[in-house]
């Protein structure tokens, strides 16, 4: 199969399929899920039946339906965080690379500072004071994550700006905005798209981890991470319950990584020596 003129390997196809299924589940949760996520339908931990394919959970709610609604929360949150982090990272990164001087210095030092600690630890510190309301969670993770986008966007813009075709445009007398929009940005898109995938899977795993630790999404709302936390004691009774949401997290991440891997390979082939 080919896509945008590139051969798509099997792993990337699987990845694309996984992403598509997850997105459909997230968007159409109320239509697809057989039951409401909050509806109590029977005894706690009832075994799977054809009616309740994965059984019921600790409060007697349908596990499968909750899994589908969980997709909505997990994917939606991660998507919003990634978009925000990209908006911040690209604007600041390009600004640093193009404006240079004190703007670049200041931005780079701030980013160095934010990266002087593991992201999780930093998040802990902020959450310990501000609490775990969703907006706090989103903004905190987005800002922490935007440091990585900043570095990539800045490096890309710097590398491209040093190329002669950009020099040609500058010597022609083109304005700064035109140079960024027409000469630099189009050549930075491919690596940035791949980075979006990477950042998404990072934000997704990060939010899930926080939720699993009880510091992310708070009840009654639930994402996959908090579901793992809610069901974790059942593992000692040999139940599958915590493995479903945890598996869902893993599968989506694998899918995204498959696609990112392929995009990076295509990108490096397009610019390499063709070896």
């Amino acid at each position: 199969m080919r896509l945008f003129g590139h051969r798509v390997p099997l792993t990337a196809l699987i990845g694309l399929a996984i992403i598509a299924i997850n997105v459909v589940a997230a968007v159409g949760a109320p239509l697809i899920a057989p039951y409401d996520q909050a509806a109590v339908l029977g005894d706690a931990w009832a075994d799977p039946t054809p009616q309740y394919v994965l059984g019921l959970d600790d409060l007697g709610r349908d596990l499968f339906s909750r899994l589908i609604y969980g997709a909505r929360m997990s994917i939606g949150l991660a998507f919003v965080v990634t978009c925000l982090s990209f908006a911040i990272g690209i604007v600041t990164g390009f600004a640093g690379a193009v404006l240079r001087g004190w703007v670049d210095m200041l931005l780079s030092r701030i980013v160095d500072l934010l990266l002087s600690m593991p992201t999780l630890i930093f998040a802990f510190i902020v959450l310990s004071v501000l609490g775990t309301a969703l907006p706090v969670l989103i903004v905190t993770i987005a800002i922490l994550d935007s440091t990585k986008v900043f570095r990539l966007a800045r490096a890309l813009a710097m590398n491209i700006a040093a190329l002669e075709y950009v020099e040609v445009a500058r010597v022609r007398g083109e304005g700064l905005w035109w140079v960024i929009r027409r000469e630099i940005f189009p050549n930075a898109v491919a690596p940035l798209v791949a980075e979006f995938g990477l950042r998404f899977s990072f934000a997704f795993l990060f939010i899930a981890a926080l939720s699993f630790l009880g510091l992310g999404v708070q009840p009654p709302a639930a994402d996959w991470g908090s579901m793992v936390r809610d069901y974790r004691d059942m593992i000692n009774l040999d139940a599958m319950a915590p493995l479903y949401p945890a598996g869902a997290i893993a599968i989506l991440t694998i899918g995204v990584n498959f696609v990112v891997d392929w995009m990076l390979a295509v990108h490096s082939r397009g610019h390499g020596e063709g070896a």
């Binding site: 075709y165 040609v168 010597v171 007398g173």
Partner: peptide, 24 residues
Amino acid sequence: RSKDQLRRIQMIYQMPDVALNPNQ
């Protein structure tokens, strides 16, 4: 420099690979 001054002096580069925007 004025647009006219810029226009009247042009340059051709050593490496045609990096002197042309690959996306255009």
